[in-house]
């Protein structure tokens, strides 16, 4: 039913997504993290577009466009801008896990998720299984980043990776109504902004932070 080429391509992109996640785990330079994230989101968009090309659901197209606008352009851009004002450039502090052990655990996680989901998902549809497994694994890896990194700004990246994983999962499992998807994404963006502002607050003095927060408020109600 699905053309083999499309299947192969999809699988390729899925593997790339996973690869990007591993890179994010390993990366210490903060602006490179933003770029990596942007690239990962682009892969998402491409995936969504390919699925649209396959089954022609407009939701997917809209989703692809939305992803490009927000996650490839706006979020990395803002993050870069915010980062410019902060003192830190590299995140070299880790809790619980070093990057290498994180990667190892990440691989274990993938097998684990495959095992659990394999029991639930309908067998036979390899693409669906693969998408779902990689989606959930991606989320878990994102969570790992949140736990193991100390700087809030990298935690934010971890969170974004998680969110990408969920997008992936939803792309393959079932298409939620567009309005829901939209709301979720808007929600997340606001959340990211808040987190970023707070993150800056923690790295600067309190007085400085107050003025930033006020600025953020004004932005929020614009």
């Amino acid at each position: 039913m699905i053309s083999p080429l499309l299947v192969t391509l999809t699988k390729l992109i899925l593997v790339l997504v996973l690869f990007s996640a591993l890179l994010i785990i390993l990366q210490r330079n903060i602006s490179s993290l933003f770029n990596l994230y942007g690239a990962q989101s682009l892969l998402m968009a491409i995936l969504a577009f390919m699925l649209f090309a396959h089954n022609g659901q407009v939701v997917l197209l809209a989703l692809a466009i939305l992803t490009i606008i927000t996650k490839v352009v706006i979020i990395p851009y803002t993050l870069h801008k915010v980062q410019a004002g902060a003192a830190i450039k590299r995140d070299v502090e880790f809790r619980y896990l070093t990057p290498v052990s994180s990667v190892i655990i990440g691989i274990v996680l993938i097998f684990f998720v495959y095992y659990v989901l394999g029991k639930v998902l309908p067998t036979g549809d390899t693409l669906l299984t693969m998408g779902a497994v990689i989606g959930v694994s991606l989320s878990l890896m994102g969570m790992m980043i949140i736990f193991s990194r100390k700087k809030v700004i990298t935690k934010v990246i971890g969170y974004l990776v998680m969110e990408n994983g969920i997008l992936l999962f939803s792309l393959f499992m079932a298409e939620l109504p567009f309005i829901i998807e939209l709301l979720i994404i808007v929600d997340l963006i606001i959340f990211i902004m808040l987190a970023v502002v707070l993150a800056l607050g923690i790295d600067s003095t309190v007085e400085d932070f107050n003025s930033r927060l006020t600025a953020f408020t004004t932005w929020l109600k614009r």
């Binding site: 639930v120 989606g135 959930v136 989320s139 969170y159 998680m162 969920i166 499992m173 079932a174 939620l176």
Partner: peptide, 15 residues
Amino acid sequence: STAMLFSVVGLIILF
């Protein structure tokens, strides 16, 4: 929020 993202996974499965 991290935990809530997992909920989305669950919601999608439910869906």
